[in-house]
Write a protein that binds this DNA or RNA. Structure first.
Length: 597
RNA sequence: GGAUCCGUAGCGAAAUUGGUUAUCGCGCCUCCCUGUCACGGAGGAGACUGCCGGUUCGAGUCCGGUCGGGUCCGCCA
């Protein structure tokens, strides 16, 4: 018998029973005579004691134990003497008087301490190399359990609503749009390759054509792009879903309660910012960019941006005037209490604005006794006063300005807004601010090729107004039934009502410069399927690792993977990626693997 | 591809800004200790200060390069 109970469950009601516990030696306290061991497993810690006067042999074994050895002990549960209970642990009222002990395995001295330390206090590369030790921390165990609970909740949620979970292929096709693919050489078809799916996008749409009208999947997705703090390298999971015969609001009505329930059930955050009817706020993409300078705004704080193009259209400041004459805009961002920013802080904000393409960062700082600004002399006192009044600034505030093309003005002030919130501590960790971003544009100008038009987000979305819009409107003004769900400045979910009509599909691609033949080659399966009675459909994909990270304020998305890759895409524990044998390549009909520098 | 920060015993940090033998806590080893729970006490081992080069009478400290790691930009339909 390796165990009859776990180390977390015994209490005063078990006194008198003989039990067997198995686990790791968490800590050992040797008093010369009596020895205490804290025995640990996933469920908790129980103190076991060894008294030399009662059982010398067992005591001698205990004398030789070291941290992280694995032992099994059998003994009686006894209540602790008065004044020796430990309130800090669940089992602190009792202890085990050991009658029999077996050492199940020994352990080398650990490369880092897991007892009484927080994971972030240890070098992360070392933690990742010894992930199996890091996982022994209750911190990480709790996160694995939490993730399990989220996934369980999601699965139940969708099943209750008539969805079925369907597995889509992992060996799929390379897709021309989007992220870099992971390629898998085919042995049966020399010279051809599979690709790991970046998302089950096309498969789930094909399921809709196949009559599976409510699909979901906890879906693995693979993208070969550089990682970030909120983006795990290579592989991640999405809660993917798709429904037939729905419009945008139908999808929202499935997702909204889920987002709200997950927040309330599993996180300590309070949801703020809901509409009066309890719905999550919907913000058109254009408004989000203008007002918050981002398509994933953090709405835990205000700091709204205001266009003042008309107010300053005739001013004497060449930078403002020049931008407006070229068709650009002037936006103003008031930071309450920002007049206290130092020169150095303003310089660093300027760098942030420049990083988003701004040429500089003009400001008006309203100090106690004076207005300090490098641009007042150009604006004049009168216009300065009007601007201050227009943006509602008061003593102690600072106003930042962006004068540029609309896009650059938005994004640069958005970055400044975000950094100011950091500097002023406005990102309240106890709050969760969800919002929908809707009405994404269908197209935008290509950044690669001057004058060319590209899909702004993805080619599968239905343009608002359908074929008529595509035929009659300026492509840059066509909106898509495309939406994101945002929490605290992070994109949690992305989705769309899809384009299910071959005719509209060809036209949409034609505008982005694809011929009918190219569409047939690259998206042949989908188009062909749509020719056989595709139902209208739409759905979404939620980045579940990222949502957990945000709702639980984790330092890194790596924390919620049992075995994460490091920031360079390596698994330090398994030492992958690794070199392979020559004959493995041969089997795949691949020769001359050389690195092109 | 670019920017930026970091690298000192097994782990976490310090070294008075270029000055003796590189310090402290935890961990490890030995001994003592019968009610602790981050037990306590005494002693001990353990470092080519990431690596290579330079400046200097003298470098953990300054400079150049390189390797490794974190974060950000690009990228992520």
């Amino acid at each position: 018998m390796l165990r009859t109970h776990t180390c977390g469950e015994l209490n005063i009601s078990n006194v008198g029973q003989e039990v067997t516990l198995s686990g790791w030696v968490h800590n050992r306290r040797d008093h010369g005579g009596i020895i205490f061991i804290d025995l640990r497993d996933r469920y908790g810690i129980t103190q076991v004691k060894f008294d030399p006067s009662k059982n010398k042999d067992v005591w001698e074994t205990a004398d030789g134990l070291r941290n992280e050895w694995v032992v099994s002990v059998t003994g009686n549960v006894v209540s602790r003497p008065e004044n020796t209970t430990n309130q800090k642990i669940k089992t602190g009222e009792i202890e085990i008087e050991v009658g029999r002990i077996e050492v199940l395995n020994k352990s080398k001295v650990l490369p880092f301490e897991i007892k009484e330390t927080k994971s972030e206090e240890t070098n992360e590369a070392l933690r990742l190399k010894y992930r199996f030790l890091d996982l022994r921390r209750s911190e990480l165990q709790d996160l694995l359990e939490l993730k399990d609970k989220y996934i369980q909740y999601m699965r139940d949620y969708f099943h209750e609503r008539g969805f079925i979970e369907v597995q889509t292929p992992i060996l799929a096709n390379s897709s021309p749009e989007g992220a870099r693919d992971f390629l898998v050489p085919s042995r049966l078809h020399p010279g051809k390759f599979y690709a790991l799916p970046q998302a089950p996008q096309q498969f789930k749409q094909l399921l809709m054509v196949g009559g599976v009208d409510k699909y979901f999947q906890v879906a693995p997705c693979f993208r070969d792009e550089d990682p970030r703090m909120d983006r795990h390298y290579g592989e991640f999971y999405q809660l993917d879903m798709e429904m037939s015969f729905v419009g945008q609001e139908d999808v929202f009505s499935v997702i909204e309660p889920l987002a709200i329930n997950l927040t309330n059930s599993f996180s300590k955050k309070t949801i703020m910012n809901l509409e009066e009817d309890g719905r999550i706020r919907r913000i058109p993409w254009k408004e989000a960019l203008t007002t918050y300078g981002s398509d994933k705004p953090d709405l835990r704080f205000g700091l709204e941006i205001k266009p003042i193009t008309e107010l300053v259209s005739d001013c004497g400041f060449a930078v403002f005037k020049g931008a407006i004459e070229k068709g650009g805009v002037v936006h103003a961002l008031k930071i309450d209490g920002g007049a206290e920013f130092s020169r150095k802080e303003i310089d660093s904000l300027t760098e942030i604005a420049k990083g988003k393409g701004a040429k500089g960062l003009a400001y008006i700082s309203i100090k106690e006794n004076e207005i300090s600004s490098p641009i007042i002399k150009f604006l004049g006192d009168g216009l300065t006063g009007q601007i201050i009044e227009n943006v509602g600034a008061k003593k102690g505030d600072i106003i930042f300005f962006a004068a540029d093309e609309w896009n650059t003005a938005c994004l640069s002030l958005g970055a400044v807004r975000n950094e100011c919130a950091n500097m002023m501590g406005l990102k309240d960790k106890t709050k969760a601010a969800w919002c929908w971003i809707i009405d994404f544009p269908m197209y935008s100008y290509s950044e690669i090729e001057e004058g060319r038009i590209d899909f702004e987000h993805n080619p599968f979305s239905m343009p608002q107004g359908g074929l008529e819009s595509l035929e009659n409107k300026n492509p840059l003004e066509i909106l898509a039934y495309q939406y994101d769900l945002v929490i605290n400045g992070f994109e949690a979910l992305s989705g769309a009502i899809r384009n299910h009509s071959p005719e509209i599909m060809y036209k949409a691609f034609e505008i982005a410069g694809y011929s009918k033949e190219e569409v047939d080659v690259q998206f042949g399966a989908l188009i062909r399927a749509f020719e056989y009675g595709a139902p209208p459909h739409g759905g979404s994909a939620l980045g579940l690792d990222r949502v957990l990270m945000v709702l639980h304020d984790l330092e890194s998305i790596r924390d919620i993977y049992a075995f994460p890759k490091d920031g360079k895409g390596k698994d330090l524990m398994m030492d992958s990626p690794s070199e392979i044998e020559e004959n493995q390549l041969k089997e795949l009909y691949i020769k001359n693997i050389g690195i092109i520098k």
